[in-house]
């Protein structure tokens, strides 16, 4: 598995576990606001969890307009 696929997989696993959604229901191109049923406050919570998980800083402005797991993984991968 490539590093970027590994990153994407870890994001999907973390999101599924935290928001209690079956992992098999999440796919890379899903709109995570819709699939996870989260609002902007919960998205901020997800951002913080991802920063802790990957030990990175991810400025919110880099996520403006990002709503799918694949692009989110790209942004995170660029910080690893």
């Amino acid at each position: 598995m490539t590093a970027s696929k590994q990153t994407l997989e870890e994001i999907l696993n973390l999101a599924a576990a935290h928001f209690k959604v079956p992992r098999e229901k999440l796919t890379p191109d899903d709109d995570f606001f819709k699939t996870l049923g989260i609002d902007s406050l919960q998205a901020l919570d997800l951002l913080t969890r991802l920063e802790h998980h990957f030990h990175i800083e991810l400025p919110d402005y880099e996520l403006q307009g990002v709503s799918d797991f694949r692009t989110l993984a790209d942004r995170i991968q660029a910080r690893l």
Partner: peptide, 10 residues
């Protein structure tokens, strides 16, 4: 100046 949010660790 950036208005970005920081987590507690930072």
């Amino acid at each position: 100046l950036t208005g970005r949010s920081f987590n507690a660790t930072k």
